[in-house]
Design a protein around this nucleic acid. Structure first.
Lengths: 225, 225
DNA sequence: CAGAAATGCGAGCGATCTCTCGTGTTTGCC
DNA sequence: GGCAAACACGAGAGATCGCTCGCATTTCTG
């Protein structure tokens, strides 16, 4: 949430330089989520840079001035949206993406579960893909965006690590980054197709990840049942 | 090249609707390549949408008006640049990326050669990556851009096909698309690092492609020397 | 209920960008 | 040399966009 009240307390004269404590009313909170939903819709269809703040306000059914009552600038909208998506993804994760014991859960199961979850998440929040995949995103956001990406990689690292117990940390990071990259590439293909073809690409992505990771697990050849 | 003379011939009154045959002088041709080089520099640093035509003209050391003497609009610059890069890539290809006989050239060699070539090409022409990877590219270019991408996929198909003789065509296409996707993902990682780390990512990309493709070749397990 | 603060509006400012136009200069051709 | 076309310039028209400001309305608080 952008600038919470903070319960300013003994802030007599202060001149806090930047933020006056703004007491949001219930109506304001509603407007914020409403604006973020509109922003998500616009971002996912036009991308970040091409999305105009006026268009976001129009999509939300409010005036441009109202938008700027809640967000200091266009960047802040994307950052806050990314933050909320990240938060939601984390809890959409934790059910499936917690580190597992290789003896209990096979690599194949882990990949299938993770990929299915990610795809479903991206289906529900197309804006996430737009923000992650955005090379059109100007400087300042990149930091927040990197935090997003870094968190993602870290998650994949913890997922992959149990399967490669005898690998140095940098190698695990490289592997995790590569996995995320392969996933993004696969997702792009998946989103570009529909129906049976889409299912085929989903399967193809899982296969690609499986073949990429399996040799690391030390398991040699005997794997097919 | 944008609108060649065409040697208009018996074009009396015509009203050709769009293009008057423009006789380029040697100076004009030089300006065009000069402008395209400037555009490549600007595109690769700022991306397409963020690149202003004035900035391209300034980079080329000419006035904005001069730029529009040779290109009808900003899109045309990107399209022509993409076309020339594609052309150059094709001939940078053909030495290494012609279909090979699996009995003579191993999959590993093919992958190593192709990846090395692609990386070197992207190093010489950073704008290519910017144009290919551009989700910020507005509608009309997408078509030309798709042609670029499609050609690339077709090339990879012919490369992969000899190694999977017993696969239906759609499956080969999916595999080729996935390869291109994996390559783009790997390239992004490679470009984000330097020195030894970069080399490690190059190796990682080759490994990823190799592991992805090897199982298709029917070769089971005995491959390590 | 009264005052303050939060919310809401929308015209429009200033900056930027694409592209045009009138004019002047250079080049090719007879 | 002389003419027409190609080339070059740069101010600025026209449009868009991010964002502001003055003012009206709603909500909260004492």
């Amino acid at each position: 949430m952008p600038e919470k009240p903070e319960k300013a307390g003994t802030e007599t004269t202060t001149a806090a330089a930047d933020e006056r404590p703004r007491r949001r009313q219930a109506r304001g909170e509603r407007r914020i989520t409403q604006l973020l939903e509109a922003a998500a819709a616009v971002f996912s269809t036009t991308g970040y840079t091409a999305a105009s703040t006026n268009a976001i306000a129009r999509e939300a059914g409010v005036s441009p001035g109202t938008l700027y009552q809640f967000f200091p600038n266009k960047e802040a909208i994307a950052i806050e949206l990314g933050s909320r998506l990240m938060h939601e993804m984390r809890q959409s994760y934790d059910e499936v993406l917690t580190p597992t014991d290789p003896a209990v859960t096979s690599l194949e199961e882990v990949i299938t579960g993770a990929v299915d979850r990610f795809i479903e998440f991206n289906g529900r929040h197309p804006a996430f893909f737009a923000l992650m995949h955005g090379p059109d995103i100007p400087g300042r956001i990149a930091e927040e965006h990197d935090a997003l990406h870094t968190t993602l990689v870290a998650r994949v690292e913890t997922l992959v690590a149990p399967f490669v117990p005898d690998a140095p940390a940098p190698a695990v990071t490289r592997t995790a980054r590569m996995c995320v990259g392969i996933y993004k590439a696969g997702l792009e293909l998946i989103l570009a197709h529909e129906g049976a073809e889409r299912e085929a690409y989903i399967q193809e992505l899982k296969e690609a990840l499986l073949r990429y990771l399996r040799p690391l697990a030390g398991a040699s050849c005997a794997d097919t049942p």
